[in-house]
Structure formats: structure tokens, C-alpha cells
């Protein structure tokens, strides 16, 4: 079954097109990444999935239902980790969760146990009675995960779940997302961390200014847009010799204020370059999703992004 089916979905705010003919399908059990720079339209699209944003044109189905007219049925089966935590600050952890469990129609008798289990799952049990303002950023984020899971949803939508978190919490959450996926949940993820997308997602769609610019598995995308290896020199000066070497050997060269990137199909070529020029790269590595992302969306990065 298709969990999400988007066909040329478009969202226009008065005159600004935030989502522009976006098409993709999310299949059951998959983890699908929606990547794109700030303002690309990711959150706007997610808002369409639960009916707060209407669809200007195109066709969107969630669980083969219309997410606007059948919003309640759709939302019963979907959990959302919103980009803003939007926790109820006036309430404690447990009160927050009890209220959301009641919204979701979790039977009274099950509420406490379900909340307790989920707090355990997210390592938050010790904070059950704390007011929200006493939680750290990472705890709040984990609590938002708990909230999104209260209704035991089939589809989990994660809008930048790890933004602003320290590496330890991020790794913890990656583990949890993997656990959830292993339990059969279907996941839609947006993130600005390419490594996160690479390790969690089966397939990825890169969007830019509302439009889809590439789609495929992480390895497919790397193969297609940045095959091979990368040498990164992070000094601005002293790059002349490597640049010359790169040009002579037809490497793909990208230079910006942060340094110079040379891409070659074979690792040995880059090693040879180091030897001959006697300048050592800050990084010598296989190309990754970040390279793809920059390639696809980076050039036209403008001030209003």
C-alpha cells in the first residue's frame, strides 16, 4: 500500500509558490527523506499531510485518503514530530502526554501505561513529573517523539527531529528511529544533516525552492551526482598547486570561501596529487550526500533562502 502519494502537489501562499509540483510515493515500511535548504517547502508540505495547509493544485493522498477532507481519519494513524516542539509549557511532562493521549482517543485505562512505556523508550521516565521548562532541549525533543507515538501511528513524520541537539542525543535518536522502523513504522524525515539522511533513509528526495530536483537512494544519488572521492583543502591560500594538478587531470573543482574541493573517480588519483604537490588535504574521503546536496542546491544559494 502507498502510505503517501503526491502527484504534482503545489502550494501557493497568495503569490509565492512554496511547493511546486512535488511528486513522490512513500511505500509502507520505508524511511523516506525530504531534503532541501531552508525555505525549500518541506514543512509546508508536511502541513498538507495533516490538513493545516490546503493544496493549491495537484493531488495528495495519505493512506489513500484526502488529508484535508478526511483529516481526522488520517491523523488518527499518523504521528508528527513538529519542527517547533510546541509543548504545553504550563503543564508537566505527564500532564502534557495525558492530554494528548486523550486527544488521540487512547482508552483511559491504557493511557498511563502507554505513556510510561514511551517515556521509558525515550529515556525520560525520571522526568515524568517535571514541568516542561525544567527540561533540556534534548529532553524536550525526546518528549515530542513520545507525543508523536502516543497514538501508535503507522506513519511517523519527523520534521527536523535532531536540529539543535548535541551529537550524543542525535545518535540516541537515530537508534530510536531505527527501532521504530524495525517495528514496521513508515517514516518521512526532513533534516539538514546529510549524514543523518544517509544512514536512516532508504530513499531521498532533494527539493529546492519548492521543486523536486533529485530522487533516489543515497548511494544512487552519490553515484549519479558526485561519484568517486573528494579531497578537501580548507585553506584559502596555497591552493594553486593542487588546483593546477586538478585541472590537468580533469578533476571536478569547486572553490568557495571555505576552501577548495577536488573530485576524482579514483582514490589513487587524489593520493598521487598529494604526493606530487606536497600539500596534504584536510580530508580525503568518498563523496557523500552532503556533496550531492551542495551540488544540487548550493550554487544558487541566495540571501533570501
Amino acid at each position: 500500500m502507498k502510505i503517501i502519494s503526491a502527484k504534482e502537489v503545489t502550494k501557493i501562499f497568495s503569490s509565492f509558490t512554496a511547493v511546486d509540483k512535488l511528486s513522490f510515493e512513500l511505500r509502507k515500511g520505508e524511511c523516506f527523506g525530504l531534503l532541501g535548504p531552508n525555505g525549500a517547502g518541506k514543512s509546508t508540505f508536511i502541513g498538507m499531510l495533516y490538513g493545516v495547509n490546503s493544496i493549491s493544485s495537484g493531488n495528495l493522498e495519505v493512506f489513500e485518503m484526502n488529508p484535508k477532507s478526511q483529516a481526522r481519519k488520517v491523523k488518527q494513524r499518523m504521528g508528527v514530530v513538529t519542527q517547533d516542539n510546541a509543548l504545553d509549557d504550563s503543564l508537566t511532562v505527564i500532564e502534557n502526554m495525558m492530554i494528548y493521549a486523550s486527544f488521540l482517543g487512547v482508552p483511559k485505562k491504557e493511557r498511563e501505561k502507554r505513556i510510561k512505556d514511551l517515556l521509558d523508550f525515550m529515556n525520560l521516565s525520571h522526568k515524568a513529573n517535571a514541568p516542561i521548562r525544567f527540561l533540556s532541549g534534548g529532553m524536550k525533543r525526546r518528549l515530542v517523539f513520545v507525543r508523536s507515538l502516543l497514538g501508535d501511528p503507522e506513519l511517523l513524520v519527523l520534521d527536523e527531529p535532531t536540529t539543535g541537539l548535541d551529537p550524543a542525543v542525535r545518535h540516541l535518536l537515530w537508534g530510536k528511529v531505527r527501532d521504530l522502523k524495525a517495528k514496521g513504522k513508515t517514516i518521512l524525515l526532513t533534516t539538514h544533516y546529510m549524514h543523518e539522511a544517509e544512514i536512516l533513509c532508504d530513499r531521498i528526495l532533494v527539493m529546492n525552492k519548492g521543486k523536486s530536483v533529485a530522487e533516489g537512494s543515497p548511494s544512487e544519488l552519490i553515484q549519479k551526482y558526485c561519484p568517486g572521492y573528494v579531497a578537501v583543502y580548507d585553506q584559502i591560500e596555497k591552493n594553486e598547486s593542487v588546483k593546477k594538478f586538478g585541472e590537468k587531470h580533469n578533476f571536478l573543482i569547486q572553490e568557495d570561501r571555505s576552501g577548495i574541493y577536488l573530485r576524482a573517480p579514483k582514490f589513487e588519483d587524489l593520493l598521487k596529487m598529494q604526493e606530487e604537490t606536497k600539500t596534504f588535504a584536510a580530508q580525503l574521503r568518498p563523496a557523500n550526500l552532503e556533496d550531492v546536496f551542495l551540488q544540487l542546491t548550493g550554487q544558487e544559494l541566495t540571501a533570501d533562502a
Binding site: Y50, G51, V52, A71, R72, K75, Q76, M78, G79, V80, T82, D84, N85, A86, L87, D88, D89, S90, Y100, F103, L104, G105, V144, R147, S148, G151
Partner: peptide, 15 residues
């Protein structure tokens, strides 16, 4: 400020 409707609207609660 509290933004509570943003999260509520992801549950079966509608506008």
C-alpha cells in the same frame, strides 16, 4: 507564544 495549536492540530483535533 506557546504555539500549542501547532501540535494539537497534528492530532485528530481540527481547527
Amino acid at each position: 507564544f506557546e504555539n500549542i495549536f501547532k501540535a494539537m492540530l497534528t492530532t485528530p483535533i481540527g481547527v
